[in-house]
Design a protein around this nucleic acid. Structure first.
Lengths: 211, 211
DNA sequence: CGGTGATGCTACTCTTGGGTAGATAAGGGC
DNA sequence: GCCCTTATCTACCCAAGAGTAGCATCACCG
């Protein structure tokens, strides 16, 4: 046998397993928070879905509130990531905006539980956690505002206050999470296309300066 | 002295007083539900704000859940009323839509607590209560859809599916409740005007059939 | 002034669920 | 196969708060 390759190795694996367990706890929590609400979800119920017991959860998360924070953060973090990727798309401001709306709408639908739980349960977050997430959302709105402003300069968009329009666009996208229902009247693709249509009309240049 | 006028009289006054008490309980409840969340609000806290005790509340409401229902219903009921009034305005579909957006946006800002509590706490409602409110919202969307369809027929609006666009418009309006912050960067009037601008662009007729 | 009903309060009960201390089992090296 | 460490569970505590039984108080009427 050659020199043992151990040392950092078993530690690494253990960490990966621990991370996996954390992720599974998060998934099941988000599911229950989404379907039943945060307060109505007991940690015993979360444990049961994983065939473990409550203290198991407490060895991976400090308390219920930390779990909520992770759930809430996830959706916003993913949206922000996708926004940044989409902004890097080659093309005009219009191309970029289309990419942003399509991809962010998709990610919001895919991660509906996280976003939706955040919107509903923000009040249950620890104040500093709520603030941290609000900073991320603010960053999202700013990046979007910058894009709109760019489009205004090139004459692609016709809006007064890009930063304010950004908030409406971001609101329209976020609203999807509260609204979309899997297996409902409309497919995810239809909702994404609708969102795209709406946003493009909102920023479209029009003849009139004001109605 | 003529024949005594009593009989139904004292009953009437008593009922009015009882109704007033119910209203005051509702106001303070909605305030606390809004600022702290439904679960985090104890009925003792509501009672304290009124300088009464918990059993007082229980003599006017069956339980905490009924109180939540009344709070949630209030905002939706008011919005629906204002929508119906606005639809009665004289003029073109455009005139009507402008009236709808302006007035509904205003009512939503004024009654933010009720709407916002509803959006957050729907999961805490008794199933039949949740359904009742959803029926009202659906009715709202239908009336709005009818108006949009009318505008499409007259050529004032340029949209594909009026009933689907209605949902986006209604979502945009509802979103205000989650978003607006009294004393924040923007005044109520600015938000209302912005909403109006956005909605009119969303329904505006454009050259292209599809982007 | 005394009786009578309505109104509101004091003082509980009882459940629920977050959180934990300490027992137990499982893995891994020697 | 034994021991030690880490991971997990059993069994509990405890606070909080919804909801209630029964008493006190007060207005109103004779």
């Amino acid at each position: 046998m050659p020199a043992k390759l151990s040392g950092p190795r078993p530690v690494r694996l253990k960490e990966e397993i621990a991370a996996f367990k954390r992720r599974r706890i998060l998934e099941e929590s988000s599911h229950l928070f989404f379907t039943q609400g945060y307060d109505a979800t007991t940690l015993d119920a979360v444990a049961e879905r994983l065939n473990v017991t409550k203290p198991f959860i407490y060895s991976y998360y400090k308390n219920k509130s930390e779990l909520l924070f992770e759930v809430c953060q996830t959706g916003i973090r993913l949206s922000l990531q996708v926004l940044e990727q989409s902004l890097a798309v080659e093309g005009s401001a219009t191309d970029k905006l289309k990419a942003v709306v399509e991809r962010v709408a998709r990610i919001i639908i895919e991660n509906q539980r996280y976003i939706s739980v955040y919107l509903r349960e923000e009040k249950s977050l620890a104040p500093e956690d709520a603030r941290a997430i609000r900073v991320m959302r603010h960053h999202f709105d700013e990046l979007l505002g910058d894009l709109l402003e760019k489009g205004v300069k090139t004459g692609e968009f016709g809006i007064q206050e890009p930063s304010r329009t950004a908030i409406w666009v971001s609101g329209l996208l976020t609203w999807i999470a509260l609204w979309y229902h899997e297996g409902g009247s409309w497919s995810a693709t239809e909702v994404v296309m609708d969102a795209l249509t709406m946003v493009m009309k909102m920023v479209a240049p029009g003849r009139s300066h004001r109605g």
